Amino acid sequence: MSDAILALRAAIQARLAADPALTALIGAGRIHGEAPRAARGVYVVHGDVDARDWSTGSDGGCEQDVALVVWAGESSSAKQALEAAALIVKALDDAPLALTGHRLINLKWQSSRLAREAKAGLAFVTIRFRAVTETL
Rank of each mutant, 00 (worst) to 15 (best):
A39M: 09
L22Q: 05
L122W: 08
L99D: 04
A84R: 07
G33H: 12
A72Y: 02
A84W: 05
L122R: 13
K119W: 10
F129W: 02
A120V: 10
R116W: 13
G57M: 05
V42C: 11
Q64L: 14
T23R: 12
A95Q: 04
A18T: 03
A131Y: 02
E117V: 04
W54R: 14
P20F: 01
R37V: 15
G60W: 11
I31V: 14
V125C: 06
T23I: 11
A39I: 02
V42R: 09
D53Q: 04
V66G: 01
L114A: 10
D94C: 11
E83F: 06
R52S: 10
G29S: 06
T133Y: 02
E117G: 01
E83N: 13
A86C: 00
I88W: 00
A91C: 05
V45Y: 09
P36F: 05
L25M: 11
R15Y: 02
R9Q: 11
A131S: 06
G41Y: 04
R37F: 12
I5M: 09
S58F: 12
I26K: 07
F124K: 12
I31G: 03
I5K: 10
M1V: 09
I88G: 00
S58D: 12
H32A: 09
R15A: 10
R103Y: 11
A81E: 06
A131L: 01
T56S: 14
A7G: 02
D19L: 03
L6S: 14
R130K: 12
W54C: 11
A123T: 05
H32P: 04
E74G: 05
G60R: 14
D19P: 04
D48M: 14
A86S: 09
S77I: 00
S112H: 10
A67C: 10
A67Q: 14
D50N: 11
L87M: 04
A21V: 08
G101K: 02
K90H: 08
E34T: 12
G29C: 05
